[in-house]
């Protein structure tokens, strides 16, 4: 196969669930310093793509490559992908009863440096407190059980807190904006923007354009029926906002059907 050139690149990716093809040849390149938005109607395969990038065992990759930092990561375990610097903000974060946020984050931070020196607890806590203040979270959160009884907004903020604490090189946000009111959306966006910079690549998966008012993408891709059917610059956001997906279907749908 061709070599892995870009910082993050998906090539001809095909994946299925229980034998049913969902992704049918996805191609996408995200260089460091870039923010890409991935949009598409329900059922187009957005969340599947996020899960496959992270290596969810429920999806079978039937073809293609995912390259990160110069290597194909498809043969890596989920935790190895994470240690390489990939982060997934979950659409539905899972509760882990009995495990405090502090304990979980410390375990994760230490796990990110296998064989390396452990992070000092005091320094780590200090840093966490700063991020929590930044995300306008109650400091008492640190002693709550991870996502256990959290509201939808609290869970999403927790995802951002984790991202800030773990400092990934590339992050996928899976519909982080869904279920957030406008104030929460602003805070979450503020958190994401804090990481955006020349060394950080971001793939923002969203259903609505709303979030893109706060996080400005450099590129926008439209996923339909398991394939990216159209890509463009920020001007595409406005067009989608005004016209919805119907024009995309009309313009690019034939290609999809022809398969």
């Amino acid at each position: 196969m061709s070599e892995c050139g870009a910082d993050f690149e998906i090539k001809d990716l095909c994946a299925s669930v229980e034998g049913k093809p969902i992704l049918k040849g996805v191609n996408l390149r995200v260089n460091r310093g870039e923010t890409h938005a991935l949009m598409g109607p329900n059922g187009s395969g957005k969340s599947t793509l996020a899960s496959v990038i992270m290596g969810h065992p429920g999806y079978e990759v039937t073809g293609g490559q995912i390259c990160f930092k110069g290597r194909n990561i498809l043969d890596l375990e989920t935790e190895e992908r994470a240690r390489l610097g990939i982060f997934l903000a979950f659409q539905y974060p899972v509760a882990i009863p009995g495990v405090t946020v502090a304990k979980f984050l410390k375990t994760a931070a230490d796990a990110m440096r296998p064989g390396g020196a452990k992070v000092s607890s005091a320094a780590f806590l200090k840093e966490l407190r700063e991020y929590m203040a930044f995300l306008e979270m109650d400091p008492a959160f640190i002693n709550r059980f991870l996502n256990d009884g959290f509201s939808g907004g609290e869970k999403k903020r927790m995802e951002i807190l984790q991202m800030l604490a773990l400092k990934p090189a590339f992050a996928v946000m899976d519909e982080t904006d869904s279920g957030l009111d406008i104030d929460a959306l602003k805070i979450v966006s503020k958190g994401i923007n804090r990481l955006v910079g020349p060394d950080f690549g971001l793939l923002l998966i969203t259903h609505y354009e709303r979030m893109l008012r706060y996080i400005k993408p450099d590129h926008l891709h439209i996923l339909m029926d398991g394939r990216i059917v159209h890509s463009g610059g920020p001007e595409l956001v406005k067009r989608l906002e005004e016209k919805g997906y119907d024009w995309v279907r009309q313009e690019f749908g034939k290609e999809v059907l022809a398969e």
């Binding site: 992270m54 969810h56 065992p57 429920g58 375990e77 989920t78 935790e79 992908r81 994470a82 240690r83 982060f87 997934l88 979950f90 974060p93 899972v94 882990i96 009863p97 009995g98 495990v99 304990k103 979980f104 375990t107 994760a108 796990a111 990110m112 059980f145 984790q162 773990l166």
Partner: peptide
């Protein structure tokens, strides 16, 4: 112990064994 719990923890760099022990210890905390 759900596959989703383990996937979530592993996506944060935690190995499967450590993920299981985290979930079990949380379960036994009281």
């Amino acid at each position: 112990i759900s596959e989703d719990q383990l996937f979530y923890l592993k996506s944060r760099g935690i190995t499967e064994e450590d993920a299981v022990s985290l979930v079990v210890n949380g379960f036994c905390k009281e």
